[in-house]
């Protein structure tokens, strides 16, 4: 426990002092703000034109300006953007040790390597979930300010479960990003992997095989393409869990056994 707390302290300090996580968080806050803008436009398109928010030639969005639409938009943003945002945080936390050549300071220590990477994973998870919570909170404030109809306690609960559930299902898949940031000794291989998985997740969802593809499952859970009971089965959760276990096991194995020449 002492090992883990030392690792957590170190990782938290590195995260708090770094600008990268703040920039990624700032970028992600664009999601609820964009959602709010769409609500304003959908609520009164003519007023939006008059205010200059949209061009008279704009293709007006279809849909309604209400709470279910706003929560749906946030769910989609977390499903699509979360995969990239969490990956960026993971790439930073793991990849920087190789880019800055600091990894060699984490290897021959009384604090075991396992404690150090567990601390990294915990900090990544806490930071990612915090950002997702902030986005959800900003979404609530924006919805109140725009004053859209359709609010209910049940909708709030379901949307919260959907959005945070999507985040929770996405995070274990970051074990592969951590592995590639480490084995690839830098940022680029892991970034390439992230782009590839996002692309394949979309493709598999379009082809109707998303419930079998681990990287598509969090997006389907968000409810972006329909009720989750229709698009996901038990097998989906089993596949996601098994894939995540493989990712974590491979990451720990690599840190314990691979030659460290950086």
């Amino acid at each position: 426990m002492i090992n883990l707390s030392s690792g957590l302290w170190a990782e938290a300090l590195k995260m708090l002092r770094s600008k990268v996580p703040y920039f990624t968080a700032l970028g992600f806050t664009m999601a609820p703000l964009s959602g709010g803008l769409f609500m304003v436009i959908l609520k009164d398109p003519e007023a939006a034109k008059t205010l200059g928010l949209i061009s008279t030639k704009a293709q007006l969005l279809t849909g309604t300006a209400d709470w279910p639409a706003l929560f749906g938009f946030l769910g989609q943003a977390v499903a699509a953007g979360g995969m990239i945002l969490y990956a960026l945080i993971t790439i930073w936390v793991f990849g920087r040790e190789f880019s800055d050549h600091t990894v060699k300071e984490s290897l021959a220590l009384p604090t075991p390597r396992e404690a150090i990477i567990t601390a990294k994973f915990i900090v990544i998870a806490l930071w990612s979930l915090s950002i997702t919570l902030i986005i959800f909170g900003i979404g609530l404030i924006v919805g109140r300010l725009v004053n859209i109809p359709g609010w209910s306690e049940e909708l709030l609960r379901n949307s919260f479960i959907g959005i945070m559930g999507t985040a929770v299902l996405t995070l274990p898949l970051m074990s592969f990003v951590a592995l590639l940031s480490s084995a690839g000794r830098g940022y680029l291989p892991a970034f390439g992997w992230t782009i590839l998985t996002v692309f394949l997740a979309n493709l598999s969802a379009i082809l109707g095989w998303g419930d079998w593809f681990p990287w598509a499952i969090p997006g389907l859970f968000s409810g972006a393409v329909g009720p989750r009971s229709d698009v996901l089965g038990y097998h989906s959760y089993v596949i996601l869990t098994a894939t995540s276990i493989i990712g974590f096991a491979a990451s720990y194995w690599w840190w314990r056994n691979a030659d460290q020449t950086r």
């Binding site: 002492i2 090992n3 030392s6 302290w9 300090l13 984490s106 220590l109 009384p110 604090t111």
Partner: peptide
């Protein structure tokens, strides 16, 4: 150095 101190226990 504080990070090193903690990791060195």
């Amino acid at each position: 150095l504080e990070i090193a101190r903690r990791l060195q226990k």
